[in-house]
Design a protein around this nucleic acid. Structure first.
Lengths: 346, 346
DNA sequence: TTGTAAGCGTTATCAC
DNA sequence: GTGATAACGCTTACAA
């Protein structure tokens, strides 16, 4: 039988008080032995530590949170873990926080503002001391609530120079502007676009705007029949490419995809349709998933260090928690990766 | 300026006491208005709710945890979010917990027992009321500690009928036994194996044992030069297949892979080497990732509903928390998916 | 129906 | 160097 059950008078896990009586000291000394080791006689401390270990005591966080006014809990709200970019971000954040013994509360909004708000509320009630939130397309009440509690926060994945929020991420508009410019520079004039749902997703909105603006700068535009919006999946990529390439003329000589999975679908479908990539059609993705380099031809795409976004966010928040006023984190710059799926049009 | 800052006497977020004075009631009534609405006069309650909303009050979880002895926090420990199967599990768990307003604390062990133990310790200190732990290959102290605190827990992903732990997952041994039998039944006699690192991973260990036992039942075995163990990645799959197929004769007519990414690597490398799949070589995977169906030929694999593992685990733990003694959850059965990457040997 | 008051487990401020 | 003791914010008998 484990020593901590029933061996004390009151069931449940042992308290500092239990340790105190067992060690023949006061509960204050128990607390000090752990939090202010220098202020307690070495011998006494050794005894306290030993009995604490014997009883399997660990300080109950709720009590200490109340007394200290600190919880050592941070929260992260992301749309979904199904997307590996968010999974990687959480992984990076988790490990950075964990190194400073901050535990991470996780909430997934499923791209729903209401759920995101609920999670934020629950987390603030749990006393999170810092909050990382993916994207800035949220209910204003969410940010009001955070501000009202004075909890440091960051918005991840978005980055606009004129954003009212501290951002850690990259400029989605700029990334897709660059990608579009790359294609324009190679001579493409008719370009298609396959993207994730725009509604309530400021990152995708920015990407689409980036494409449109790059085209507009050359006096060009997207034809409606060349634009497809839907769930990011290989399947939707395939279906969209077929729709675009079997629609009315003129057909695009290049298709920009909102992420690699859409692009991989497009690439595979192009192959199925007997189109030569990149000669008949250039295709670009985003994220540089492992598969992007393995296809034949390889996928031209852009890479972002997602885990780094997470750890940068954690670093920033940790700095805020230690009272510092960290300088704004400069935007990450997605790395352009040119592979075989792009070329000048025939 | 938000109403909750400085408008009260003491800085920081408003407390139930602040709401109480503002509404002209006692703090007990504030608490009741939220937790026992029937026990308070409708008019008073309305007033309390209104002022609480006006002040932006929400109960501080640490206080209520202390008073109630309940935290409404659960913890999950997984190896890594980089693997989509764990990400999916956490997603399912998160959403089920969240529907019952339990928030989820996340810890990633990076396949390191020590880290897993540390996370468990930190989580217990935070007062998690339930714990889900991936796999059962952990320090015994971890389970002792959990038992000492009387916290309900489940082991996910593993399933052995004789496990001392409540398990929610599938029988890894059985799954790979079946897969091997499938190949044997089709006439394969020399089979290769490419798997993830076995050390400290009971699931992979079980998979390897499943393959070996199915072979042994036919008086066969794995030749050392046909077995490769390393990080799961397309790259390692490629490299391993090349090593196996360019090694000494006899070469295997089928290669079993520990997951789909290894198998996809093997498939691509086989193509590069000019081997015909499935005629020259059969290849199998595990997980049924989206890409598995898209390759040419499609990958024969097995599918597990990972999100379901997460939500079943959450359901089980929630039941335990409401004092029930849920009957053991039967093992999930991975669905066998036959595609073009397997055939009888030439 | 409502208020009073006693905890919950910890830490911090005092005295000693 | 150590021990009382008073918070911390909330819930819940128990009284009124």
């Amino acid at each position: 039988m484990p020593p901590s059950r029933k061996s004390d008078g009151h069931g449940g896990p042992p308290t500092a008080q239990d340790v105190a009586v067992a060690a023949g000291v006061s509960s204050a000394t128990v607390s000090r032995s752990f939090n202010n080791p220098d202020k307690v006689a070495p011998l006494v401390r050794a005894r306290v530590l030993a009995t604490a270990a014997a009883l399997g005591w660990m300080p109950h966080a709720a009590g200490s949170a109340l007394a200290r006014g600190r919880t050592n809990i941070a929260g992260a709200i992301i749309p979904t873990l199904d997307n590996e970019i968010f999974a990687a971000q959480i992984g990076g954040m988790q490990s950075t926080f964990s190194a400073r013994s901050v535990t991470l509360l996780l909430g997934c909004s499923n791209y729903d503002r209401e759920q995101a708000f609920k999670h934020a509320q629950a987390m603030l009630a749990k006393g999170v001391e810092a909050l990382a939130i993916a994207g800035e397309a949220h209910k204003p009440e969410l940010f009001d609530m955070i501000a009202a509690r004075g909890v440091p926060y960051v918005v991840t994945y978005s980055y606009r120079t004129d954003s009212p929020h501290p951002c850690i991420g990259f400029d989605n508009h700029d990334a897709f502007y660059r990608m579009t410019r790359y294609l324009l520079d190679r001579g493409h004039r008719t370009i298609g676009l396959i993207v994730q749902p725009v509604a309530g997703n400021d990152r995708i909105e920015a990407r689409v705007a980036g494409v449109r603006n790059a085209l507009a700068d050359q006096g060009l535009g997207l034809r409606p029949q060349h634009v497809r919006e839907g769930e990011w999946s290989i399947g939707f990529g395939r279906e969209s490419l077929r729709a675009i390439m079997s629609g009315p003329l003129p057909q695009p000589t290049a298709v920009i995809c909102g992420n690699d999975w859409l692009a991989i679908g497009a690439l595979l479908e192009a192959r199925t349709m007997g189109l030569m990539v990149p000669d008949d059609l250039s295709i670009t993705g985003f994220d540089d998933v492992a598969m992007a380099a393995q296809l034949e031809p390889g996928l031209t795409t852009m890479r972002v260090d997602n885990a780094r976004i997470g750890s940068l966010a954690a670093d920033y928040l940790l700095a805020r928690l230690s009272g510092e006023t960290p300088s704004p984190v400069p935007p990450l710059v997605p790395e352009f990766i040119e592979r075989g799926s792009t070329a000048p049009p025939r």
